[in-house]
Amino acid sequence: MTGQRIILAIAGLWGLTGVIMLAAGSHPPQTGNLAVGGQFLLFHAAAVIGLLSTVLITGWRRALPLALLLTGSGVFALEILIHAIIGIVIPGLAPIGGTIAILGWLAVVIGALVEPSKR
């Protein structure tokens, strides 16, 4: 299995989990936070699929944002899910995940602007 297939499978898992979280978050008493986590996963899953499909960003310029977007959104949503299901808040986990996701978007910007090296 290639690395791109694994990344695509993770993006699909994030999309699946995002839809489940959105559905669960639309019914009381679990409203609000689950929907935010679900949206976070869905948006980033779509972005990852788009990055996999582009030829404009390749090599490290694609690998870095893919890793950061998947990791950040996963960590962010995991904290929300743990809080909603178990009731435990893991301090700092959501902000860490959000920061990693933000760095992923910054990596997309940098990757789009940095020309690939000509060998």
Rank of each mutant, 00 (worst) to 15 (best):
A35T: 13
H44I: 06
N33I: 08
H83A: 14
G92I: 02
G32R: 03
H44R: 05
G92E: 03
G15I: 04
L78E: 04
A47R: 06
L51E: 02
G37N: 07
M1V: 10
L42P: 12
G12I: 12
T58R: 15
L13D: 03
V55G: 15
L81F: 15
T54E: 10
A94Q: 08
I49Q: 08
V109S: 09
I10Y: 01
G18L: 10
L34E: 07
V55S: 15
V89A: 13
H44D: 03
P65Y: 01
V89Q: 12
P95E: 06
I82C: 07
V114L: 12
L106F: 15
P65N: 05
W105Y: 08
Q39N: 13
L113V: 10
G12M: 04
G111H: 06
A35Q: 12
G59A: 09
I49W: 01
I6A: 14
R61G: 04
G72S: 10
A107N: 05
R5V: 00
V114G: 07
L13K: 02
I80A: 10
I85Y: 06
G37S: 13
R62H: 02
V108H: 04
W14A: 13
L64C: 11
L113P: 00
I20F: 13
I57E: 05
L22M: 15
A47I: 13
A47M: 13
H27F: 05
E79C: 12
P29F: 01
L70H: 02
V75M: 10
L51F: 03
V19F: 01
